[in-house]
Write a protein that binds this DNA or RNA. Structure first.
Lengths: 167, 167
DNA sequence: AAGAGTGCGTTTGAAAAATGAACCCGTCAA
DNA sequence: TTGACGGGTTCATTTTTCAAACGCACTCTT
């Protein structure tokens, strides 16, 4: 699959991944949420190759996750800031942080988070209806209005994503 | 930066990304949460090159996100299942799904989710202390016990991630 | 006026990774 | 004994990534 086509898959994960499913991109976004805005600041913090950083920032701007704004004329200087669409990625980043904190931080958390309610906290994902914590086993899925027009058939029926040829 | 070293960065996002920050890996995990378990099933659903799939599954097993279990002897057949550590990635996947639903699904959601409470729902990330929805602007960070021993100094001080040489 | 520094990139070749096709292996059923 | 199935590996080619160098427009210092 080419990554161009990934964004057109009838799956929200695939579409999201087509925009942010890249290691450098996720690290760039982490830094955005920490307040980093300038090309050089990203470069110094991440030790990312410049061409890659330029490419990722360009793509994030194109997909409207970041916007590039002039913060100084003469000499022209730009900064990259999260849009509303970009800010909406906060749960993704926090979910990653929390998973890393729980499973990959044997020496303790690298960073502590404090909420405006005054306490240190963990991010918890809950059901918008009953407000209890979401567990994978308690969720079922069904096709929605944006699903594929021509749904895949079970493997028995010929034509299910062309079985690989045998000699 | 080599990806080997990324897992050792004093940042939970970096560590999480070193395990799952890859496009195919995220799509494999999506399918895991949809109940896919077998090599061929992943291959058919994702149209992923076999060597890449084998590599990603191997890495996920090594990092204990999946476990490979024999579900049939003679002929030997295996399946890949989420471990507890893997199940804990559910908020990451749901956060991606929801972002994709909101920002990348002009024709409606490809998939609807129903919670065991009986309702269709959205996943919402809340503060574990006050239970209100988390907003990036309402969170501050501070160094934690697992932070770097030798913290980076502000750029003014020499040695801040070696400034690139000039001609 | 010369030279150095800054911010933000692009170009260039070499190294690493992804890709598609083919191949392999143990088992079973016809 | 031929073929199918599940689950991979090998191989050659294309695509990405990388580090280093280069470019440019401006400003600051001497």
């Amino acid at each position: 699959m080419q990554w161009k086509k990934l964004g057109k898959e009838p799956c929200s994960v695939a579409r999201a991944v087509s925009v942010i499913g890249d290691r450098w991109t996720l690290l760039v976004l982490r830094d955005c949420f920490l307040g980093v805005r300038r090309f050089e600041a990203f470069e110094n913090r991440l030790r990312i190759p410049r061409p890659v950083l330029a490419d990722r920032l360009r793509k994030l701007v194109r997909s409207e996750v970041l916007k590039k704004t002039l913060y100084e004329k003469r000499p022209a200087r730009y900064e990259y800031r999260l849009t509303e669409k970009g800010l909406d990625l906060y749960p993704v980043i926090m979910a990653l942080v929390h998973w890393g904190d729980v499973h990959m931080a044997p020496g303790g958390r690298p960073l502590l988070h404090r909420h405006s309610c005054g306490h240190r906290f963990d991010p918890v994902m809950v059901c918008s209806q009953c407000e209890t914590e979401l567990k994978a086993r308690e969720v079922t899925v069904a096709p929605g209005p944006g699903g594929r027009q021509n749904p895949r058939k079970p493997p028995k029926i010929a034509g299910f994503s062309s079985p690989r040829p045998r000699s």
